[in-house]
Simulated assay, not measured.
Amino acid sequence: MIIRPVDEVRGELDAPPSKSYTHRAYFLALLAEEDSVIENPLTCDDTLATVGAIRAFGAKVDGGNVKPPEEPSAGFVYARESGTTARFSVAIAGGINGGTIVDGAGRLRARPMGGLVRALKDLGAEVKGSHLPLTVRGPVKPGRVRVDASKSSQFVSGLLLLASKVGLKVEVEDPVSRPYVEMTLRTMEAFGVEFERDGFSFEVHPGVRGAKYRVPGDYSTASFFLAAGALYGKVRVGNLLRDDVQADMAFLDALEEFGARVRRGKDYVEVERDGLKAVTLDCSDFPDSFPILAVVAAYADGKSVIKARQLRFKESDRVRAMAANLARMGVKVKELEDGLEIEGGRPKGAEIETFNDHRIAMAMTVAALGAEGPSIIDNPRSVSKSHPGFFDDLRRLLE
């Protein structure tokens, strides 16, 4: 796909439904005692993997209508390239009497699973393997478990979902991406799950009620369009709730630190271009924003440092992927162990490698809109992992 530079990006659109909330709602609907209706679920490669997973566990799914089984059954789960699907499925399998195989494709087979595997073993489950494919044989014994969450908050969220079925005390060590755990807890509340917490220690009582649940808009995907407003004009994105707990809401604070004008409404966010200056940021709690923050830094005045703790364990090694692509665009960039040092300026058009990573593809497309000369995106279809309509939405802002 060829991306040609534009003079301005200006307009408004609605954010797509949240991928993270969609995953959580489907898995809770699987565990519920009654039928559930999930309104406005996101349909993309990752959420289709989750629909396939809960069907494998015995649920009947028709769009947003979910009829749970009397008890989830052991089986085979193919998580495609969805880390959330894989980790939640591994955790749920720990509560099932029988052996479940969870497998996936691409880099997912190399992504960390150790913290979750150790926790399930401590609870009495049998787990074969340390990476996908994993075979999990439950059921776990109710009790207390400690989980090392330094590699992924999804280990915590998966155990909390399991706990909502079997009852557990979950103690979390060294958590990253903490807001994603808050999203899990908020969704659990919507499905009637009762729990107590003390910091990042949780006592979850068994019992999930069926629910009518509406999926909120996605700040993560909205960040790419809002960044285009910060760089090239003015963009308003609706369907974003101000009282949400999504991790990538912190992206708005980061844009303000860069110097962009940010206006938060009750159900929208508007971002307008202004003089952008370099910043130093740690986005460990919202690492999905790293690629697009690196793009903003590439246009900001001065030298920025953007870091996060787990960037090398995503759909790609996002440190290396962004370093390589920004360098191709003539940006002075230095690769750090946990991030990038970026000298801002005016990027040049280039051939962009997406590394089959949806967020690299979207971020570098936004970068190309202001570059000197056209750019080529090598695998634009990778955006279907989280937002198949990304390019259609972007065109609306360019009309």
Rank of each mutant, 00 (worst) to 15 (best):
S20E: 09
Y21L: 11
H23M: 10
R24D: 08
R24A: 05
A25G: 14
Y26V: 08
A29R: 08
L30M: 11
L30H: 05
L31N: 08
L31C: 10
L31V: 09
A32P: 12
A32D: 10
V37F: 12
V37N: 07
V37K: 13
I38F: 11
N40Q: 13
C44E: 12
D45T: 13
D46H: 11
T47K: 10
T47D: 07
T47M: 08
T47I: 07
A49G: 13
T50Y: 06
V51G: 03
G52Y: 08
A53C: 08
A53S: 12
I54L: 09
I54Q: 06
A56S: 15
G58P: 12
A59R: 11
A59V: 01
A59D: 08
K60A: 13
D62H: 12
G64V: 10
G64S: 12
G64T: 12
N65Y: 13
N65T: 13
N65S: 14
P68D: 04
P69M: 03
P69A: 02
P69E: 08
E70C: 04
P72C: 02
V77P: 11
V77F: 04
V77R: 09
Y78A: 14
Y78D: 15
A79V: 06
A79M: 08
R80L: 11
R80A: 12
E81C: 05
S82K: 11
G83M: 10
G83H: 09
T85R: 01
T85V: 06
T85F: 04
A86R: 06
A91H: 09
A91M: 05
A91T: 09
I92E: 00
I92F: 02
A93R: 04
G95K: 04
I96Q: 03
I96F: 01
I96S: 00
G98P: 01
T100N: 07
I101T: 15
I101H: 00
V102D: 10
G106T: 07
G106E: 15
R107L: 14
R107T: 15
L108V: 09
L108P: 11
R109A: 06
A110H: 14
P112L: 09
P112W: 06
M113I: 11
G114F: 00
G114I: 05
G115V: 03
L116V: 05
V117C: 06
R118M: 07
R118Y: 11
A119Y: 02
A119G: 03
L123N: 01
L123Y: 03
G124S: 03
G124P: 00
A125D: 02
E126Y: 12
G129A: 13
S130I: 09
H131P: 00
P133F: 14
G138P: 01
G143N: 07
R146S: 14
V147Q: 03
V147Y: 04
D148E: 11
D148C: 04
A149S: 04
A149F: 02
A149H: 02
A149C: 04
S150Q: 07
S150N: 13
S152F: 05
S152I: 03
S153M: 02
Q154E: 10
Q154A: 08
F155R: 00
F155M: 02
F155T: 02
F155A: 03
S157D: 08
G158E: 01
G158V: 01
L159K: 02
L159I: 01
L160Q: 02
L161W: 02
L161H: 05
L161K: 01
